[in-house]
Nucleic acid binder design. Structure first.
Lengths: 162, 162
DNA sequence: GTTTTTTCTGAACGTTTGTTCAGATAGCGT
DNA sequence: ACGCTATCTGAACAAACGTTCAGAAAAAAC
């Protein structure tokens, strides 16, 4: 708490005008991150053809997450510090996001475009792969964001197509 | 330290007969995990055909990591608690492991079997996807380990083939 | 300009942390 | 049975932790 206060230029006690305790502060950070993610996803144009939907999802995921490295870092690394109740809340939100991708994969299978034996697992596999970008991508690095998008979209597409 | 000692049935002070301090203990856990990983990888049969090499790598990675959920968890979640020196050590070992996959991808491109524009990134993408298994896989769950291997091998193969 | 409300400080609290160490205990070779 | 070595206990230490609160300071309202 003292570190956080220092980073905002204030004494530790002042933080308690904004949060009842540390746990609630953490929950708030995670929850607002995931709610932003869900809102932004919903606000995204939703193409009809399943291949376009998957491409939109892939590129959006990379873009959104690479713009918020700190929030993403916290949302993954601090999961174990949530109380059981709060953990369930966060897992629920994350589940909603995963369901969006899973639904795309289901549609792709139904349309005969994708070959995915287990859409639930494929969802987790794709998201793990995409979120991995945050462990190495730095803006100003060797690859531009569009180049990264291109590489990953290529791999995601191939990994699920018929 | 008191929790660790308790889990071993001993007082906290007794741990200092085995480690000079907490940081060294953490480094030891991570280092031995990664050295085991490198040894076990090296001890693995190494097929000639690049497709077989990739399959062996994929299945081995899933098997090895699913057998050590705790070590894998620590090796990823505690990275930020390493001193800069120790972090460099661990990153070096991890880099060695990644290089093994990257070399396979390079061979695949050279052989005209794989279509991978950036083998370094593809390596990170594949490993992120495979390591993601540990976040959800539980032995005795819906899917057996061979089934998991099959699903992931399918996706990995397709994501890099020409 | 004064009052009222909001925000922050600075010190204090009880707990938990990593670590040390004198002494107790256990294990082993002889 | 004895001595030597390896191991563990239990208390203690300073530092860091999350949190509280009376009062100062700043901002807003009138």
């Amino acid at each position: 708490m003292r570190q956080i206060a220092g980073a905002v230029g204030v004494q530790a006690g002042a933080l308690y005008n904004y949060t009842p305790d540390k746990q609630t502060l953490l929950l708030g950070l995670m929850r607002s991150h995931l709610e932003e993610l869900l809102e932004a996803t919903a606000a995204q144009p939703n193409p009809k053809r399943v291949m376009d939907r998957l491409e939109a999802f892939t590129r959006f995921h990379i873009r959104f997450h690479s713009e918020r490295p700190d929030a993403v870092f916290i949302a993954y690394m601090e999961l174990r510090n949530l109380s059981p109740d709060n953990f369930a809340t966060i897992e629920g939100l994350r589940g909603q996001y995963e369901n969006m991708l899973e639904e795309i994969l289901h549609q792709g299978v139904a349309d005969g475009v994708f070959d995915v034996p287990d859409p639930k697992i494929a969802t987790l596999a794709v998201i793990a792969m995409l979120t991995g970008v945050n462990t190495w991508y730095r803006s100003g690095g060797r690859l531009s964001l569009p180049e990264v998008e291109e590489i990953y979209w290529d791999m995601v597409r191939k990994s699920v197509v018929r």
